[in-house]
Design a protein around this nucleic acid. Structure first.
Ligand SMILES: [Mn+2]
Ligand SMILES: [Mn+2]
Ligand SMILES: [Zn+2]
Ligand SMILES: [Zn+2]
Lengths: 145, 145
DNA sequence: TATGCTTTTGATTTTCAATTTCAATTGTGT
DNA sequence: ACACAATTGAAATTGAAAATCAAAAGCATA
């Protein structure tokens, strides 16, 4: 799993003529070992603990590279922080976001996806991407009210 | 239409103990006479032309008030600028956003709304709001390719 | 292994939207 | 008119993200 992702990134880097650097290896290791939906700052701080030399800019740049390589997906929720999640080829999902505890629940709905395509067709629109986010309170936060 | 909105805001202001000010009247007039999905900066510049004294901060603050009052809805698309649209009581819609010409097409789909509720229920989640944005190219931008 | 060229890095600066600050101004009840 | 709280707006601040650029590192070649 992790090895496959590393291989995929190496192939992407080779195809693009990118150099292999210690920093990119470290950032990839940390990214692959995080939970989903990590923010750049969170990842940066985690890395900094054991690799104090690595800078903000490199983390920002490298996550963009991972996205380009298809390993990561950028998530922009309503809190002004860009987050990244692990992207799996051919996989797509949307998010339920708890405004109480910031938990994120993933879901997929084939019917919703299909209806979106129909709406786009009806308007002569060609879909490139979409985002569906449902904000509210998760079961625990509702109980804690 | 416009008079009703003004009345609605006055009632909200009265209930909240807000004072009636020249600035809020002006900003409301301009907001009500704009097209949909206006950014704060766009609205500020429009107002500034005839009312140079009005400041950024007041426009920001007042649009937040309109949102609280239910006259406006905040829209955060992928361009880093908060936009506001006219909110109509009981009305909801989502957006097709053209990345070519920045056109925004509105749509409603009862089935999608219903499916979202079902998904939320399945996860014990209480919905407070949601956003569905479909990004891509509108018919004209496709043709112009 | 050394050379030379190019990419990459990271401290720092810059950007930009949005918010905060706070002294001056304004609205409102008395 | 007065008192006092709310409001305003210029300016400063914030925070995320991008840009800058000299130094460091990677890599092809000798
Ligand atoms: Mn996810
Ligand atoms: Mn709209
Ligand atoms: Zn929660
Ligand atoms: Zn278009």
């Amino acid at each position: 799993m992790i090895l496959e992702k590393k291989k995929a990134f190496n192939e992407f880097a080779a195809a693009k003529g990118l150099r292999s650097t210690r920093q990119r290896d470290i950032i990839l290791d940390f990214f692959l070992s995080t939970h989903q939906h990590v923010s750049v700052e969170e990842l940066y701080l985690k890395i900094k603990a054991s690799h104090p030399g690595i800078g903000h800019a490199t983390v920002y740049r490298t996550l963009k590279l991972f996205t380009e390589a298809g390993l990561a997906r950028e998530i922009l929720l309503h809190d002004g922080q860009t987050r990244y999640e692990h992207a799996l080829a051919g996989e797509h999902h949307d998010h339920l976001v708890c405004t109480g505890c910031n938990a994120i629940i993933e879901f997929e709905d084939e019917t919703i996806e299909k209806l979106q395509k129909e709406i786009a067709t009806r308007h002569g629109f060609m879909i490139r991407s979409h985002k569906l986010e449902i904000y509210g309170l998760c079961a625990e936060c509702r109980a804690a009210q």
